[in-house]
């Protein structure tokens, strides 16, 4: 199957909008129903808090945001637009510092990127999309099929390799991922590839033995390059709820996670948990996924995300 290559930039923006607008439609509907110039009192604040909770922001972040709103606007008459603006400001303020595009370091041959996360979060697909973006920029990319557990994970990556013109390094199912990664890194170095993207098997963060396997994989690749992986990205599904906190906490405690990728933002899921995560962990957000096609990976823009979340049209 081949996907038509759409105009990249226009595609990005419109996709983000169409993805996030569903999120904001919900939030919007709620907000509009709530606020036709009302007095911002305790009851209204509580309703606002509920709306933010329903967007997966979580209780403490929701409270933090409404408290902030109360500080500036309590007991004043307020319109929907003003509430949206104020909330978007507050959210953008939290998210601003974490927005960080992925730029491979040209002095590294290769720049090693390790992907990790729970099962089904979208690691392999994200790698495919990132490979697409990198090869389009003229980079040479090697993909390492480090998920030797899930059936046909290597085949899935292989297809992405064909689509993007990247070399895929894979071994038999059940191979020790550490040894595979060792060989993949050796190969990528020999070819002085620009980027090595390493896929890993999905693992739930409470599975100690699987987390240990991931630690071992990293230790082993450091035998070749002490500084690898240069970027360790944790992939999160936008539909995830408050368990995202546990996922991020445990992964970053056990391995050195550099940043996040939030996937599946084109659904009805709010992705609001990202605000809570940024508030709590301050981990950079490198990219967001807004579809299944090659070009559906975008760099993360805090203001745009906040605006879209609250249904504010960009000027």
């Amino acid at each position: 199957m081949s996907y038509p290559d759409k105009d990249a930039k226009a595609g990005w923006v419109s996709r983000l909008k169409s993805g996030l607008s569903r999120t904001s439609q919900n939030l919007n509907y709620n907000l509009d129903g709530l606020l036709n110039k009302r007095r911002l009192d305790e009851k209204l604040l509580e309703e606002l808090e509920d709306i933010l909770i329903a967007a997966d922001l979580g209780l403490s972040t929701a409270t933090k945001l409404t408290t902030k709103l109360a500080r500036t606007h309590l007991n004043g008459a307020i319109s929907t637009g003003e509430v949206k603006e104020a909330l978007a400001d507050a959210i953008a303020e939290i998210l601003g510092p974490v927005a960080k595009p992925f730029v491979p370091n040209p002095t590294l041959k290769p720049h090693v990127v390790l992907f990790c996360g729970v099962n089904g979060s979208g690691k392999t697909t994200t790698i495919g999309k990132l490979a697409h973006a990198l090869t389009r920029d003229g980079k040479t990319v090697v993909l390492a099929a480090g998920d030797t557990f899930r059936a046909a994970a290597a085949e899935q990556l292989q297809i992405w390799g064909e689509r993007t013109g990247s070399q895929v390094f894979a071994k038999d199912p059940g191979t020790d991922p550490a040894s595979l990664v060792f060989d993949a890194l050796t190969l990528a170095q020999k070819q002085s590839a620009d980027v090595l993207l390493i896929d890993t098997a999905g693992r739930l963060q409470n599975r100690g033995e699987l987390m240990a396997e991931l630690q071992k994989t990293i230790r082993v690749m450091q035998k070749i390059d002490e500084t690898a992986p240069h970027t360790c990205l944790q992939v999160l599904d936008a539909t995830v709820g408050q368990n995202a906190h546990s996922q991020v906490e445990i992964f970053s405690n056990l391995i050195n996670v550099d940043g996040l990728v939030l996937t599946k933002l084109d659904g009805s899921a709010k992705g609001g948990v990202l605000v809570a995560l940024a508030d709590k962990f301050s981990l950079p957000v490198y990219a967001i996924g807004v579809g299944e096609q090659s070009e559906d990976l975008q760099s993360f823009d805090a203001r745009e995300f906040a605006n879209s979340l609250l249904g504010i049209e960009a000027n």
Partner: peptide
């Protein structure tokens, strides 16, 4: 459906 799902689970299931 994923047990890790958040608030959106209800929307998805309904749809």
């Amino acid at each position: 459906a994923d047990a890790l799902s958040g608030q959106d689970a209800v929307t998805t299931a309904q749809a």
